[in-house]
């Protein structure tokens, strides 16, 4: 059970949060111009990294804000959290 430092509320129990998958996958601005392959890439393909991953979390049972997290998926160590739209911290 992680202890997550919500950038808006501070440290809270993991139970208050929901994970939202890989971060920084920008929704294409003009989906209709993409090939099926390109669209599939956006829709389904994931880095699924073992190691340092940038990912989205939602403080769903709290402030309901989405934010980003840097986490080592090999040992679940949370390295940093930052707000949506902010630049990811450099590794």
């Amino acid at each position: 059970m992680f202890l997550i430092n919500c950038p808006f509320c501070g440290e809270r129990e993991q139970s208050e949060f929901k994970a939202g998958g890989e971060a920084h996958i920008v929704r294409p601005k003009q989906p209709t111009e993409l090939s099926d392959d390109q669209w599939a890439e956006y829709l389904f393909m994931r880095k699924n990294i073992k190691g340092i991953q940038f990912e989205r979390w939602n403080h769903i049972h709290g402030c309901r804000k989405w934010f980003n997290m840097v986490r080592d998926t090999s040992n679940d160590e949370i390295k940093a959290v930052y707000k949506m739209g902010e630049k990811p911290p450099v590794k």
């Binding site: 929901k18 939202g20 929704r27 939602n58 309901r64 989405w66 739209g85």
Partner: peptide
């Protein structure tokens, strides 16, 4: 609601 919040906050702020 969650899905719409997601798009609103992350794709279309």
């Amino acid at each position: 609601l969650n899905k719409m919040e997601d798009y609103l906050q992350t794709e279309w702020p």
